[in-house]
Design a protein around this nucleic acid. Structure first.
Lengths: 205, 205
DNA sequence: TAGGTTATTGGACTTTGGGCTAATAAGCCG
DNA sequence: CGGCTTATTAGCCCAAAGTCCAATAACCTA
């Protein structure tokens, strides 16, 4: 179930650590969802839920890095703060380069934890915003007919209706119709706006 | 003096390490510039020179992190590979988050070093490419008169000439002239192209 | 098979944008 | 002061784009 409030997902195989973190964060006013193993988290978390992930590095079966990789693979970019008892430098480097917000070593100071959580939640909020904008554009793009999309691609490269018609083997009048309908469906009030929209989502893909 | 070839800058206060790295990299066919202290590097390196930076973390006076910060401040984004005898996790996190390519611990294996160097040089090449494109656009923007720039800003937001004229308190004919000259100077063959150019450099700045 | 979507085209008309020449005026520099 | 850049405006013409209405044809689905 998705909550309006951002929720901090907690994954640690050590029950005492899990409980302690849970209490600490709840007492600071955060919503918390605790998971005792990576598998439980991966099958139980909600992609639509705002929040972040406090992730233990070393766990039996699946490591925190595996969880990060899995999330990246499915495109769920929940900001991760790693918690580790004895992290090494190469692992830290990889974790951060793959997008982790921070990498904390146990025992974790409260300040460091809260600072990392605040940063992770801020990043998630920003990610969700830009992601929502892209999704809106994608939905509009999806409402175009194949032909309209074809025409639109030519339009945003700056071609004239006449040129587009020649390349698509039809006449200018037809292009004008598709173009006008595409502008409507994309809710673009100007060509400039349309170009910006397609830049944001990378129409080439 | 700038070379065509990418050059690896080496900064380490330990003469034996400096010599060893220098020899190793030269024997692998790289151009190398060795510096015995951070100050010598900062005052002696060439901003225009392609390459990367192999940087010792702990040095007397100025640490590697200080060097990184200094480079970031002046906008010289030379890719950094940190070398450290006893790096800690928080430092590693900061280094990578501030853009470092890798963080290696001594003694460094040859493979790890070469892999990091290759990655750093690749990043530098990519950075230089996109940076050159932005610089080209900036030069063209700089050639616009104040009025032409004003008009251009309105144009790329999708306004009609008529509207721009009203907002700038003049007539449509005048706007057309400025607009046409701006398109020429920017070497934009279409409005779409112009919008894309201004997106790349962020006209708002 | 009837109806909806999609793709296509035509015609008429308006608005917008761009190219050309030309003229005026203000401000700056040597 | 004379020449240069910049900013402004005018008129004319054409090309391009957008807006109506209207019609045909293919295709898929209920």
């Amino acid at each position: 179930m998705t909550t309006r409030e951002p929720t901090i997902c907690l994954v640690d195989d050590e029950p005492s650590v899990l409980r302690a973190l849970d209490r600490l964060l709840r007492s600071a006013g955060y919503c918390v969802a605790a998971f005792a193993c990576p598998e439980a988290f991966l099958s139980g978390y909600d992609r639509e839920q705002a929040g972040c992930l406090l992730l233990d590095l070393t766990m039996p079966g699946m490591s925190g890095m595996d969880v990060q990789q899995r999330l990246n693979e499915v495109g769920a970019h929940l900001p991760i703060v790693f918690l580790s008892g004895y992290g090494d430098i190469p692992t830290t480097v990889r974790a951060i380069k793959y997008g982790a917000v921070d990498f904390l070593t146990k025992p974790v100071s409260e300040e460091a934890l809260f600072a990392a959580v605040r940063e992770a939640l801020a990043k998630n909020a920003a990610d969700r915003l830009s992601s929502a904008e892209r999704a809106l554009i994608q939905r509009r793009l999806a409402s175009l007919t194949p032909r309209e999309l074809e025409v639109l691609k030519h339009v945003v490269t700056g071609k004239l209706n006449k040129q587009i018609a020649a390349e698509l083997g039809t006449v200018e009048k037809t292009i004008k119709v598709h173009r006008a309908r595409a502008m409507q469906k994309m809710q673009a009030k100007s060509l400039a706006e349309l170009v910006r929209m397609t830049e944001r989502v990378g129409l080439g893909s």
